[in-house]
Design a protein around this nucleic acid. Structure first.
Length: 933
DNA sequence: CATAGTACGTA
DNA sequence: CGTACGTACTATGG
């Protein structure tokens, strides 16, 4: 701590005193006990909830002193005064017992005193401490779920009272009490005495609630005032008061908190210090607390560390502006560490960019920033000589120089399509243009945190380096750049690029070691980085479009839209509502036509396809039919229009695969999204007919599209991971899986499984991997919840290993804080610990699904590497052009069809060695539609 | 002009 | 009250 901080804290100390029992009890009911159990069966939900509450309070309230008060089991003066005190309470749940002792142990490890006083309750300790603190001129914060503590509130004392579980503890000051109860804090126990407190088994005056009690207290100033004028109070309530006078007096006596206890420690002894790390670690091991451990340490570190721990801005070396070969050589000489390279590309390839670049435009490299650990440099490509350009290109292609980059794929594409005026010559072959890449910090960040929203360099710097990327360069590093012929603006820009390279260097340092700790280095080096090269190729190649067919489709869908729109208007008397506006539709459906209400949305009632189908069943109104036709047609039209708009000059569509978008490890496709091209309906499938085999620039020979997809990849992964004998055997025998499962679940012979049985089982099997509930299953299959539950239980009876696996996935994730795929790809799910049920259950379903979906993603990524490598090693001209999660699409030279087919099947099947075979289905045809089998 | 909300296509 | 995405549209707030 710095000296200045000490002086400041001398005059403002804050004591936080917690009613341990009351808060533990609240925490116990806020978090489900069954989710917090150690291997030995000890429940820990109250401990966990209490601890996370404590951390939040330390963060928010920043107390200098903390103590926790506990009740003892021994009689108190209250129970001796009134034998019924706190009688009739529900028995403490078994899962709660023992957790108080654990909390005391945790407090001990955190070096926070636990205080107990024989004959008194925790409340009295709280009262005494807060009173003492206030007397000493400190601030006091009481954390308690007991409203009796409200009487302690004054200018120096605030009560933090739990509202929702233990996640929200709004501060109650005198104003809050007046606002909520209409009395002052001092009057509050008097009000409570009149009303009674059922939790303490203290009945008050029957028929008198807080409203009347407050009115009386206001009128007569205090309870004494009320009692002095007791005869003036009329009505039934007045009679009741006179009748229950003794109870009121007793209540007031009992709810008065003792503020004059002899405590076993002084206020100063409650000073907050660093936890005993060894004790904490040991204890948390036993409690199986893994995710909260870091939170404990960082919370205390940040809270106690103050300014001295905040990261200083990264001290960047001076930047050399390189514009000749000698400078370049000087920069490189003696370097034997990775060199980070920042590619300044226009337009920037950021996903968030509003303006979508023209189809086929991959940007141009205008400048390059470089950094080692002790030097930075920048080259203005637009000003560089052809000679320097060639040298830099050679450097990038020289594997002896290890490189660290940000967004390799984008750089490869820009380099591959460099314009002829650039001194960096276009390097069409992305296999060789940039090699020796040890790290792409974009991909590293994705592996470390796959559910981040943004991965822009500035975001990563913010997260990992605690420094700002876009600050103006310091005069120090800019000074070097103010050279003749370089204006200030440009110099600042160029300095920024060097700075970016420096940041990439720093990011690599930090992320590299984290990846190593996690054992994720292989995922980066052997999967994601090589994959980004393959993706660069795929994106550059694109897929050919039959524009004629596309134009015809557009015309056809457009006329269908018009037709449906006219019919829709006609069916509601010519009212020209905007059929694309849910808001206007709600008026038509639920007001004008007065149809039955559908499920609620944030803005009214739903008009989605399911709801419309329900309404159609109930009302049979032609408008619904027309609206659905309109929706279908517009959706198809917009898909077609989107494709039309994204055709590049080569008459091909070049989607971009985002390698960092999906938290599970999947790729995503954008501009346009080719992973959601319709396939289910006949009209939709027409769109697949416009993706065709195109001409291959390397050979003037006819081509064909080849598709290969994994059949039931996720089910197979589930069979593998759960090691369920039944499922494994079914796959080994090559059975119709859903028929087999159907025969087991319904206990009939496989050939007796009806279509309806098979459909139900299929929906359930897939649903299981998503955390489907019996409610969800019942809704989807339009059966009763009981029937759905029945279905699920017979499924789990037959496939018990699946149920055990699914349970265990969530249990393990809760313990570790993350899920893991077959290749060790992690997904962190902090919400598994949330006391918000909806959030927690969402996280549980995500935990269920992530290893399955993610492992499937791992598999096909690995297969893509294998396929690409084989195609090239065998010297084939055929090219991989698309991936749709479980499907690969190749544009093959007709003479290579058989070889390519073989490569696909072999490489995709060999992507993993599972307990079940991997079935790969192949198809071929002129169009994507025809190639589907 | 950016954001939220709804809807809907895929695996 | 089933996971994972991206895009288009309307409505709204600035």
């Amino acid at each position: 701590m710095t000296a200045s901080k000490d002086t400041a804290s001398d005059i403002s100390k804050t004591l936080m005193v917690i009613d341990g029992h009351s808060m533990a009890y609240r925490a116990f009911f806020a978090l489900p006990a069954e989710n917090f159990q150690t291997a030995t069966g000890q429940h820990t939900n109250a401990v966990y909830g209490f601890l996370s509450m404590l951390l939040a309070m330390i963060r928010e309230q920043k107390p200098t002193h903390v103590a926790v008060a506990f009740d003892l089991d021994t009689p108190t003066f209250r129970s001796e005064r009134y034998s019924e005190y706190k009688a009739g309470r529900d028995k403490t749940p078994e899962e709660f017992s023992g957790q108080i002792d654990l909390i005391k142990k945790v407090m001990d490890a955190l070096q926070i005193p636990s205080i107990e006083v024989d004959g008194y309750e925790a409340d009295d300790i709280v009262a005494t401490m807060s009173t003492n603190a206030a007397a000493a001129g400190w601030d006091a914060r009481i954390v308690s779920g007991d409203r009796d503590t409200f009487q302690l509130i004054n200018d120096n004392v605030t009560v933090l009272y739990p509202m929702r579980g233990v996640s929200e503890l709004p501060p109650f000051d005198a104003d809050t009490i007046v606002e909520r109860y209409g009395v002052t804090p001092a009057q509050y126990p008097e009000l409570a005495a009149l009303v009674g407190e059922s939790a303490d088994n203290l009945p008050g005056v029957p028929g008198v609630g807080p409203g009347f009690a407050a009115r009386w207290l206001k009128k007569y100033g205090s309870l004494k005032g009320v009692l002095d004028h007791i005869d003036e109070i009329g009505g039934k309530k007045g009679d009741a008061l006179r009748e229950h006078l003794d109870a009121v007096k007793r209540n007031r006596e009992l709810n008065a908190l003792v503020t004059t206890l002899e405590l076993p420690l002084s206020l100063e002894e409650a000073v907050l210090v660093s936890p005993d790390r060894n004790k904490v670690s040991e204890l948390f091991d036993a409690l199986e607390f893994n995710t909260i451990r870091d939170r404990v340490f960082t919370t205390f570190d940040q809270h106690l560390g103050g300014a001295e721990e905040s990261e200083p801005d990264v001290d960047m070396p001076e930047t050399a502006l390189i514009d000749n070969l000698d400078d370049w050589q000087a920069f490189l000489v003696g370097v034997n560490e990775p060199i980070s390279v920042y590619f300044h590309i226009n337009p920037p390839a950021t996903i968030t960019r509003r303006k979508i670049p023209a189809p086929g435009d991959y940007g141009e490299i205008h400048a390059l920033g470089f950094s080692t650990s002790d030097a930075t440099a920048v080259i203005d490509i637009d000003q560089a000589s052809a000679e320097l350009g060639l040298t830099v290109a050679a450097f990038l292609a020289d594997e002896r120089y290890t490189k660290v980059v940000y967004d390799l794929k984008t750089a490869l594409k820009a380099l591959a399509t460099a314009p002829s005026h650039s001194v960096l010559p276009a390097q069409r072959d992305v296999n060789t243009s940039i090699i020796g890449v040890a790290d792409d910090v974009l991909l590293s960040a994705y592996i470390l945190q796959p559910d981040r929203r943004g991965y822009e360099l500035a975001d990563l710097v913010q997260t990992y380096l605690n420094a700002r990327l876009n600050t103006v360069p310091t005069s120090q590093n800019q000074g070097q750049l103010v050279l003749e012929g370089v204006n200030d603006d440009n110099a600042a820009q160029l300095a920024q690029y060097a700075r970016n390279a420096w940041m990439i260097h720093q990011l690599n340092d930090i992320m590299g070691s984290t990846l190593e700790e996690r054992g994720s280095v292989e995922l980066l080096h052997d999967l994601e980085i090589p994959l980004s090269v393959v993706l660069a190729k795929i994106e550059l190649i694109g897929i050919a479009i039959d524009r004629q067919r596309l134009d015809n489709l557009l015309a056809g869908f457009t006329s269908e839209v018009d037709k449906a729109q006219e019919s829709a208007y006609a069916s509601i008397g010519g009212d020209q509502v905007n059929l694309a506006s849910p808001k206007q539709l709600q008026i038509v459906l639920f007001e004008t036509l007065d149809m039955p209400k559908t499920r609620k949305t944030k803005t009214g009632f739903s008009t989605d396809a399911d709801s419309l189908a329900d309404l159609l069943e109930k009302t049979d109104h032609p408008f619904l039919h027309n609206l659905m036709a309109y929706r279908d047609a517009t959706k198809l039209r917009q898909t077609v229009q989107g494709l039309l708009d994204s055709i590049a000059d080569d008459e091909r569509v070049h989607t971009r695969f985002s390698q960092t978008a999906a938290a599970t490890g999947r790729l995503s496709s954008l501009n346009p999204n080719l992973q959601n091209i319709p396939v289910r309906t006949p009209a939709g499938r027409q769109i697949r007919d416009i993706f065709v085999a195109g001409t291959n620039p390397c050979v003037d020979e006819p081509t064909t599209l080849l598709t290969a997809d994994y059949s039931q990849i996720e089910m197979r992964i589930m069979a593998h991971m759960s090691e369920d004998d039944g499922l494994i055997q079914a796959y080994k025998d090559g059975e119709d899986l859903h028929r087999f499962v159907g025969s087991q679940v319904f206990d009939v012979e496989p050939d007796e499984v009806t279509t309806s049985m098979r459909d139900k089982v299929k929906a359930m099997s897939y649903g299981l991997a998503y955390g489907l509930s019996s409610f969800g299953l019942s809704r989807q299959l339009r059966i009763s919840v009981d029937e759905a539950r029945e279905l699920m239980s017979s499924y789990f009876d037959r496939f018990g290993a699946v149920q055990r696996y699914l349970r265990n996935v969530v249990r393990q994730a809760r313990k570790d804080g993350y899920t893991q795929t077959m290749l060790g790809r992690r997904r962190y799910l902090p919400d598994l610990q949330s006391d918000n049920r909806q959030l927690r259950e969402m996280a549980e379903r995500a935990a269920l699904n992530a290893p399955i979906q993610g492992s499937a993603a791992d598999l096909i990524k690995k297969a893509m590497l294998g396929v690409q490598e084989r195609l090239e090693a065998d010297g084939l001209k055929s090219r991989m052009i698309l991936q749709v999660h479980d499907e690969l699409i190749l544009e093959v030279i007709d003479t290579e069809i058989e070889t390519a087919e073989q490569i696909l099947v072999e490489e995709m099947s060999a992507a993993a060695n599972l307990l079940v075979p991997l079935d790969v289905q192949v198809g071929k045809g002129y169009s994507w539609h025809e190639a589907a089998h």
